[in-house]
Computed example of a mutant assay.
Amino acid sequence: MMWRHIASNAVTMLIVLLFLMGGLILWGKGQYDGSGPLEQAICLQVPSGTNMRRVSAELENQGAVTSPVIFRMGADYADKTSQLKAGSYLVDPGASMAEIVDVVTRGGASTCGTEVVYRIGVNRLGVQVRELDPQTNRFEERASFTPAEEATPDIYVQKKAQGDTRFRVALAEGVTSWQVVESLKGMDVLEGTVAELPPEGSLAPDSYEVRPGDDRAEIIARMQSAQELRVAEAWQNRDEDLPVQTPEELLILASIIEKETGVAEERGQVASVFVNRLNRGMRLQTDPTVIYGVTKGQGVLGRGLRRSELRAATPWNTYVIEGLPPTPIANPGTQSLEAAARPLETDYVFFVADGTGGHAFAKTLDEHNRNVAKWRRIEAERASGN
């Protein structure tokens, strides 16, 4: 009887222990999966060579987890401890331990911290060093400079050497292929050479993530692949009655639209002018094509066109030649490609600057001459300082 009583008590204790363990596991899982205590977003730095113990301690210090032990146990149970990735990661308010583990083990680019942006613009290459403010989720500029004209700031040198700094190449709409290649040469985080100049118009304006040591030719290839897809899509969705016969001609037209206006809302109108002119057998008579004939895309003209240049017979002078020039004159963006493929339906055949950054459009020469006279008055007033 005594042994039976002892055995019965032992079974009871085992049941109680199992029940308590089950409850403890459920509680721990609730802690791991439930909302965390973080009230404001933080940028978590995960240095190269660190481990989950140090990461969990840092998270506890910043008030992001209630228990570093549960954090590590959960990561172990999910078999993610060995997948820890170095970088800088944005941890949102209320993020659960499970969500944080996923963020620091998923891989890929950092989601906060320092970013160096190389901006390839029409006039120059600019470099910006900026950091993400986790509270506002907006980047704050720390430094900016033009490599060809200014000394390199110390913060750029410091941040470039950090392993969690991200690098990005931002290619503006309307730059030429020569400008892109020359700008890539000026980026000291890249390596390799570009054997030959990419065809004009073949590079997609966009923002490209790069890493120190990336090959310049491979970045060019990425830009070309992206542009091929964009041109193919625009061509596929084009209006059936366009006066262009090939995707290359569509690209040429888009590049002219790109250089004629920086106002997104009027690209369709500008496109309609050129389409109407082509349909009527009128010369395009657009200054950007003449400028390209002078510079061949190698830099900015930096002055007004001379009368002799407007009369000069170059393959790109649309005051002289009929139809489209033989090549694009810049690398157009998606909006200009779409405008070329599906222009607005208008009767406009003229346009001139209106003094606001946009253009005044006209259906007749008389109306256009009045718009030109108004623009000349604005130019004169600006020149006199009034």
Rank of each mutant, 00 (worst) to 15 (best):
P326G: 00
I329S: 12
S336M: 06
G302R: 03
Q298N: 13
R303V: 02
A330N: 06
T318H: 04
A339E: 09
L337K: 12
P328Q: 09
R307N: 15
T334A: 10
V320S: 09
N331L: 01
T314Q: 13
P332G: 07
T314M: 11
Q298W: 00
A330V: 02
G297L: 10
T334S: 03
S308W: 05
I329D: 08
G297C: 08
P328R: 04
L305A: 04
T318P: 00
Y319T: 02
L324F: 10
P328D: 09
S308K: 13
T327A: 06
E338P: 00
L305R: 05
A330I: 04
G304Y: 00
L301F: 00
A312K: 14
P315I: 04
G333Y: 08
R307W: 13
S336Q: 06
S308I: 14
A313R: 14
T327V: 01
R311D: 15
P315M: 06
I321P: 14
A340M: 08
T327R: 03
I329N: 08
G304T: 07
K296N: 15
L310A: 07
I321F: 13
A339G: 09
L305N: 07
N331F: 02
N317K: 12
Y319E: 01
N317H: 09
A330D: 07
E338T: 14
G297F: 08
K296P: 05
E338K: 15
T318Q: 02
A339F: 09
A340D: 03
R303E: 05
G299R: 03
S336Y: 08
E338Q: 15
R306T: 15
A339M: 12
A313Q: 14
G299W: 05
A341H: 02
T295A: 10
G304N: 14
